[in-house]
């Protein structure tokens, strides 16, 4: 479960303060796949980072599996992220000098399980599952965008998190690869996970059970289905 209560964030940039997120409350239950849509600059990425324990909100609370990650000291919070949350980004953010398999296994460094044979086995399974077996020992530079995003997806899933947070994951992908990623999200939700997808792509949003719209740092009250927005 992912629970945001009245979170807000103001950036203090060189050209004055920017209110990126302005009092958002939303609760995502397990097995829910929720998309947040909105125009560029409306605060989607900021919301996602706050939800993912990566950016301390100025105001409001965040609870992930009933834990407020910002109440934890930084290293504990990092471990908490590693165990509970998988991230997927538009720019993939793979470690450039690690092979596909090592990039996937890097996630296990956070949980101290990187040398477990079961974890290695799971990494190979994921690599296999996303059609990367023949690229297992290649570095990101030599991969296509789709292959890179599939690697990032495998990495996000390695530690069997309860939450998947994705920021424009299909932005750089062709339709086929976008489908693979979106299908993986659906499968993850079906298996009991919580998915938060931020995107401005209507098609991607349409794959979610629920699509919320964000504008000027706030969520529209119009909702596609039963997501609790307060």
């Amino acid at each position: 479960m992912l629970e945001l209560t009245n979170v807000a964030k103001t950036y203090h940039g060189a050209s004055g303060p920017v209110q990126a997120v302005n009092g958002v409350s939303v609760t995502l239950e397990p097995s829910q796949f929720v998309a947040v849509q909105g125009p560029s600059g409306c605060g989607k990425s900021t919301l996602l980072l706050m939800a993912g324990g990566l950016m301390h909100p100025d105001q409001g609370t965040v609870r992930v599996s009933d834990v407020d990650p910002y109440s934890l000291p930084p290293d504990k919070r990092a471990t908490f992220r590693g165990e509970r949350i998988g991230f997927v980004f538009q720019q993939f953010h793979l470690v450039p000098y690690l092979s596909v398999l090592d990039n996937v296994l890097a996630a296990a460094l956070a949980t101290g399980t990187s040398s477990d044979s079961a974890v290695s086995e799971r990494a190979r399974q994921l690599v296999d599952q996303f059609g990367l077996s023949h690229r297992m020992h290649h570095v990101p530079n030599s991969l296509s965008s789709g292959e890179r995003q599939r690697t990032a997806l495998a990495r996000a899933l390695l530690n069997e998190p309860s939450h998947l947070l994705a920021d424009e994951p299909t932005g750089n992908l062709d339709r086929e690869n976008a489908e693979i990623v979106l299908n993986a999200f659906s499968d993850f939700a079906s298996a009991g996970g919580t998915v938060l997808l931020v995107t401005h792509d209507d098609h991607a949003a349409s794959r979610a059970q629920t699509s919320l719209t964000m504008r000027d740092g706030k969520l529209d009250q119009t909702t596609k289905s039963s997501v609790a927005t307060r």
Partner: peptide, 16 residues
């Protein structure tokens, strides 16, 4: 910066 950022994001501790 980028790789350290992502490693931190996916849960590596500062001491690592």
């Amino acid at each position: 910066r980028e790789e350290i950022g992502i490693l931190r994001a996916i849960g590596l501790q500062a001491r690592q």
